[in-house]
Design a protein around this nucleic acid. Structure first.
Length: 375
RNA sequence: GGACGGGUGGGUGAGUGGUUAAAACCAGCAGACUGUAAAUCUGCCGCUCCUUGCGGGCUACGGAGGUUCGAAUCCUCCCCCGUCCA
């Protein structure tokens, strides 16, 4: 069987050490997936991603559908071939764009009509259509289309979106059963339910009845307090089968990642390391370092003195500041390399900590160090 | 020697009697960023005082005078810069 998820160890906290086997290789979990929306993790090459140890990346159905088009990518051999990335890929469905492109779309029970942010043209994405695109793209893990709402939201709106998301999940499962190949792609269902605990549980419970090979928790980290994110994650996780992978979508800050792992999350993705890198924010073991700050103009130290990444081993804060302030492309490249290394390294350490039954200590040490602030 | 044009806050440069401490952009300083419409966005950016308020005082549009209730804006003279004519 091409896909197999092994849970190697479960921590008393609920954290799991696992391995997800896919046709493009295995993924050690918990894992962090760098975001490569348009078939590119902005700023760095696929080779650099491999060297960083990224085992899976995320791409976006909506963006690739608009450009260059899923049929073109299918003709060119699928997304792995097209972008020359041999390892696993997960495609998000476009559900997040329902949230982030709120001004440019209209949602009905049937699907979502988007006005393209590229040229204003109208495009319709239904659960079935999203899957058609995702099947053509050929990612190892594909997501159902969901309705991701803003928080806070009133109960009525939350229920409506959760119900619709569930309905779409059912339609997606049926469509994939008819047109997809479970040996080639894993279809994940998505739990919605806003900040309503009972709704989260109910939504998860019903989703599990649809029997997806993996489950995601969506609609979190959209502005709500971290405690709420944790609480909702726990509510949903309580209903999800231990034998299947769980993906918490769109998180998170470095200091919060262990919290999600402790709530049983196996996969995460977030634009923070890549976007912030381009905006001059470096994640370090001592917290965020804004490289453009004048205080670094003569600082010969690496961004993070305890970091072993290729950037910290070679370049000074003074040089990186110069690059950023000068608008040099290299600033984006180096900052991205560092930030992704930092995130992937946290995941490595988390896996190690789970293995040695040490996660609680790792979590509090990580948080304490991050609060110190860069010197 | 003459004719035009011009001298504005760190820079470029709007503004041609009052709502102008003076647009905009740049530079500078600080901050934000969570399934990427983001190499983006936001705030501050003359000095000073306090009971921090769409608060008070001071200084400021080449220089000096003047007109006016009021001038970066109008007048006079002077000093610089540019172009052209001798």
């Amino acid at each position: 069987m091409a896909f197999q998820f092994e849970v190697l160890k479960t921590d008393p906290s609920g954290a799991r050490l696992g391995r997800l086997h896919t046709p493009h290789g295995a993924i050690d979990t918990p894992t962090f997936m760098p975001v490569g929306t348009a078939g590119s993790v902005k700023g760095i090459t696929q080779q650099q991603l491999e060297e960083l140890g990224a085992q899976i990346i995320l791409a976006n159905t909506y963006h690739l559908f608009l450009r260059p088009g899923h049929e073109r990518i299918r003709t060119l051999g699928g997304l792995h071939c097209f972008m020359s990335w041999p390892r696993p890929i997960l495609t998000d469905s476009g559900g997040f764009q329902v949230f982030s492109l709120a001004d440019l779309r209209k949602v009905t029970d049937e699907g979502v009509t988007f006005r393209s942010h590229l040229d204003g043209s109208e495009h319709f994405l239904s659960p079935e259509r999203a899957l058609e695109v995702e099947i053509a793209l050929g990612a190892d893990i594909i997501m159902v289309l969901d309705e991701c709402i803003e928080l806070p939201a009133d109960a009525e709106r939350t229920r409506q979106a959760a119900e619709r998301t569930f309905d779409w999940a059912r339609r997606s499962r049926d469509y994939f059963a008819a047109h997809g190949d479970p040996a080639q792609q894993m279809l994940f269902g998505i739990v919605q339910g806003g900040a309503l605990a009972e709704l989260r549980r109910e939504n998860a419970r019903r989703l599990v009845e649809l029997d997806f090979p993996g489950y995601a928790i969506g609609g979190l980290a959209v502005g709500e307090p971290h405690e709420v994110t944790c609480a909702m994650t726990a509510e949903a996780a309580a209903e999800l089968p231990a034998t299947k992978p769980r993906y918490l979508m769109g998180v998170g800050k470095p200091e919060d990642i262990p919290d999600y792992v402790e709530r049983g999350m196996d996969m995460m993705d977030c634009v923070l390391p890549t976007r912030n890198a381009r905006n001059g924010c470096l994640f370090t073991s001592r917290g965020r370092l804004l490289i453009k700050n004048a205080r670094y103009a003569g600082d010969t130290r690496p961004p993070d003195e305890s970091c072993a990444c290729p950037v910290c081993r070679r370049y000074s804060r003074a040089y990186l500041r110069h690059l950023f302030v000068s608008g040099e492309i290299l600033a984006a490249v180096l900052n991205t390399l560092h930030n992704l290394y930092f995130y992937l390294d946290i995941m490595r350490r988390i896996r190690e900590a789970i293995e040695f039954g040490d996660l609680a200590r790792f979590r509090s040490e990580l948080r304490a160090n991050l609060e110190v602030g860069p010197s």
